[in-house]
């Protein structure tokens, strides 16, 4: 068959864990994003509410951008740790992985 990955790598035993983790984190971010969209549409006045010297619109908007990065880094750390753990547990039978570049 003429498809399949363009490169080869070792079997990824952590993929099930990473999929679940990704879905949960997606759900959390999705709820925060949905909250933002709903407030913006239903009650734009609420977005004008002062938060310190700024307002909710700016703080929530920047918050979503920063949250995306923070959650991405947490996901990467957890996924990376899982990859190492799964690889070490089954090391004798798992072929060597291509070194990440």
């Amino acid at each position: 068959m003429d498809h399949g990955p363009s490169t080869q790598w070792g079997e990824d035993l952590a993929s099930g864990y990473k999929t679940k983790l990704g879905l949960w984190m997606f759900l959390v971010y999705g709820i925060v994003y949905a909250g933002f969209v709903v407030i913006n549409s239903v009650s734009p006045q609420l977005m004008a509410m002062p938060i310190g010297r700024l307002n909710l619109a700016i703080v929530y908007g920047f918050g979503l951008i920063i949250l995306a990065l923070v959650m991405a880094l947490i996901y990467n750390a957890m996924a990376g740790r899982a990859e190492t753990q799964f690889a070490s547990v089954s090391e004798p039978t798992v072929p060597e992985t291509v070194e990440e570049r």
Partner: peptide, 20 residues
């Protein structure tokens, strides 16, 4: 920007695993 969260948490690794 928020769209990239879908890319990271849901699509990135499976896309790489499945496609050529």
């Amino acid at each position: 920007l928020a769209g990239w969260i879908v890319a990271l948490f849901v699509v990135a690794e499976p896309m790489k695993r499945l496609g050529k």
